[in-house]
């Protein structure tokens, strides 16, 4: 697999939030503003890259049976490091992220990448994969964050868009329902775009259908049910159905 593909696929094609539907909790909880979203995204990216690195390095030594606990410990360690660094230098951001900072540990993206990619690949691709996925995650939650901040507070990055424009803001968007709503509408919009694209593609190359798309997470290993199930959830999301030959229907 080309390195470039490894890097970029997390941006759109296999975006962890919008396509794979992983890491939803932070994607909604800390996206009241762009600032928090960016902070969370970077923190998660850091953990993702570091854990991928260590997992990739140690993939030969960790016995198969206990690898999940080992991965979790590795991830938890980096999360603790992020937490401590943030407490020292960005206490405000740490307060804003609240319990979702420690909860990066259970962010399915990180464990998923560790299990599905880093534990099977060499150092460099693993790091690039982590970086790509991390950027994809950051991108996604920044999109949510910016939408919610504009609609909910009429601000971008904490700066009001127009003077006195606050009156038109709908505060609901920085509350829980607004988070769900923004996420739902964004997902629907991306689904719509995906369906359009698939339709165009199908028209363009009428009949010649690519083989099965690269599975997001390796499903051939049944011993790791966690990952399988997450992937199952991912499949329920958007993206063209790559199951049936010639099918251009988005798979919901």
């Amino acid at each position: 697999m080309a390195v470039g593909n490894v890097f970029t696929r997390g941006f759109f094609k296999e975006n962890p939030v919008f396509v794979l539907l992983l890491g939803l909790c932070p994607a909604l909880a800390v996206t009241t503003g762009l600032k928090n979203a960016l902070g969370m995204g970077l923190a998660a990216t850091f953990v993702l890259v570091c854990s991928n690195l260590i997992v990739s390095l140690s993939r030969k030594f960790i016995p198969k049976e206990v690898r999940i606990p080992c991965f979790i410990v590795i991830i938890a360690t980096f999360v603790t490091i992020v937490k401590m660094v943030m407490a020292a230098f960005l206490p405000e951001l740490k307060e804003a992220l609240g319990i979702f900072l420690p909860l990066i540990v259970v962010n399915c993206i990180i464990l998923g990448r560790a299990e599905a990619f880093a534990s099977k690949n060499k150092l460099l691709p693993s790091v690039i994969d982590g970086l790509g996925m991390g950027i994809g995650f950051t991108l996604a939650i920044c999109i949510i964050g910016i939408v919610r901040e504009i609609l909910g507070a009429w601000m971008i990055f904490g700066i009001p868009i127009t003077r006195g424009g606050m009156a038109y803001s709908m505060k609901v968007f920085i509350l829980a329902p607004g988070g769900f709503l923004a996420m739902g509408l964004l997902l629907a919009y991306f689904n719509y775009l995906g369906a359009q694209r698939a339709r165009r593609l199908a028209l363009a190359q009428k009949g010649i259908h690519e083989g099965k798309g690269a599975p997001a997470v390796d499903t051939s290993n049944p011993t790791v049910q966690t990952i399988n199930s997450q992937n199952m959830i991912g499949k329920t999301g958007a993206g063209p159905c790559n199951l049936c030959p010639g099918c251009d229907k988005p798979n919901f």
């Binding site: 769900f180 709503l181 739902g184 997902l187 958007a238 919901f252």
Partner: peptide, 20 residues
């Protein structure tokens, strides 16, 4: 349900309404 909303998006919108 509109095609692009079937499945997860509508679940989120339903969750939004529930939260409201």
């Amino acid at each position: 349900v509109p095609e692009c909303m079937q499945g997860v998006p509508i679940a989120f919108i339903a969750a939004a309404c529930m939260a409201l």
